[in-house]
Design a protein around this nucleic acid. Structure first.
Lengths: 136, 136
DNA sequence: TGTATATGATACTAAAATAGTATCATTTGA
DNA sequence: TCAAATGATACTATTTTAGTATCATATACA
């Protein structure tokens, strides 16, 4: 079972890179090329990932010469759940559990109830992990 | 993200069916055909799943006429983690998290450390859910 | 104002994981 | 003996994930 997809993984790496660059006061605006050079990720794929982060207002993007991407939120305010939500949808350990016939009464299903509790713990823990905390 | 694969799902359904049949003192030995009729699962696929459960000593199997499958462990002693382990490997939310370059020092990685704690909670909770508890 | 250098958008292909089928071999009770 | 069951294994299909190709658009700056 793959808890994080590669989208999420690459997004985190890119954001961590950007966070470090920001701390060093190196640069605020970073290009896909910068990240690819440092992190050795597939360029076009990563580009789409950053575009998506821009759509979702995690990053701002600037086109044209001297363009690139910049944080819109501060790294300490970006949680890994935010990133997982963007690329994998909401974290839901209860889906696919005996869905359909066996569990016709979803709200009454004891497995579902237990899994919801587990899910809440997972989300709560993950919410405490920010890009900033990963970047140092 | 799919927390349980269909293997696991079908295995649980089959075991729940068997547990109910056992409670009713209906029958101890159940055929794949019995389960398929009741649960509407794909027969050959399910058969392989039950074979696997037999390999792993969750079930006993009997060939030939009047053959079928029977619990080896009692339903109250079969946890859903046992089933997930068989079909999906060990539950490990920490895998695929920034593996490789960014996390060269696995043991020092703060994300990994946190995820291990989360993982432990998940496993602990899931361990409390047995086939028996799902069958009633 | 032309052009190199960025991202935006979208369609496509490749690879891997998951789901499922087909089929023949073996065992066994009646 | 034979019908009814599992054992074993090879194959196919589907879905998800990963990644490429390509053209459009914007912009700094020589």
């Amino acid at each position: 079972m793959r808890f994080m997809t590669r989208d999420t993984d690459y997004a985190l790496r890119a954001l961590i890179y950007m966070s470090k660059a920001l701390s060093r006061k190196d640069k605020k605006v970073v290009t896909v090329e910068d990240i690819v050079r440092s992190e050795k990720l597939p360029k076009v794929f990563l580009r789409r990932i950053l575009q998506r982060l821009a759509e979702r207002k995690v990053l701002a993007s600037y086109k044209g010469n001297a363009g690139g991407f910049m944080f819109l939120s501060r790294p300490e305010n970006i949680r890994i759940t935010d990133i997982m939500n963007i690329f994998q949808g909401r974290i839901d350990l209860t889906n696919c559990l005996l869905k359909g016939k066996i569990c016709p009464e979803r709200s009454a299903c004891p497995l579902r109830k237990k899994m919801k509790a587990v899910n809440a713990v997972v989300v709560k823990e993950l919410d405490r992990i920010t890009i900033r905390s990963l970047a140092r």
